[in-house]
Amino acid sequence: MTLLQFDDVSVNYASSEGAVPAVRGVCLSLDAGQTLGIAGESGCGKTTLASTVLRLLPPSAEVRGAVLVNGADVLTMNWGELRAVRWSQAAIVFQGALHALNPVQRIGDQIAEPIRLHEQVSRKQVDARVAELLNQVGLPATRAKAYPHQLAGGQRQRVMIAMALACKPDLIIADEPTTALDVMVQAQVLDLLSGLVKDLGMGMMLISHDLGVLGTTCDRIAVMYAGQIIESGPALEIFDNPKHPYTRALAAAFPRIGDPSARYAPAGLPGDPPFPDDLPSGCAFHPRCPIAVAACIESAPALIEVAPGRMAACFRVEP
């Protein structure tokens, strides 16, 4: 069975000037043991999309479509069913571990909290489970007594991952898990996450703005722009041979070291990503697109298959 499926998911935020579309008609799926990468810039809707899985959005957000976790739609669940999904079926690792952890509570107690909430277990069993989780994320069990400020950035991120693993979820959602970390620590955390997916047979949805991170970690990648998926396909192919002009710009933003064409030639796009409340007409990317034509201003291209297993939403990409 498909572990996670987004079925035509749209999210509108209510504002004084009407509905603001943050996510627009996303269809995606993820199987157990696989890693799905979501690429995109701030404001493109990737965190909003991830938040729909556990229904973490504020009441002002109107979600349409269906989000199936192990075949059950979380959008229509009652409170009890939803509570069972949170942690025990799907868990989120948020970005910015320093702000997500409670500064005045020992990390062992923070990791134990979901276990105590979701399972009937003795104090001793909880302690054993916490020690096991810390080991799993590469921290000595004695660190359970530490407070967050006593840990380095990468160690805190490991604690966040241990918390997410606490109730043995089938699905883990990692939202920019390495953004605030150094390259070396980023490599450690990505290694850890990939190892966990492999060893525990979980599914992972990994969100990042760095196509390089996703290309090396994921099986498939979906690229979002202005709330829509504009390209998707196998990770290595997307990284190696992006089809959509936006994906090409994202790939070029982080140059390959040793590539002579990137020397003294940083690649970027003019302008800024659009605000969801002020989307351009037609294809939302057309004002920044280097190859836009008249048709792009008038109508939005559909996400269609452009090569086996490859989808792109662009008039200029030949199937």
Binding site: H209, D210, L250, A267, G268, D272, P273, R288
Partner: peptide, 14 residues
Amino acid sequence: LDASVRGEILSLLL
């Protein structure tokens, strides 16, 4: 900065 904006700022420094 966002990935697509980064190149423009680096071009400016250059």
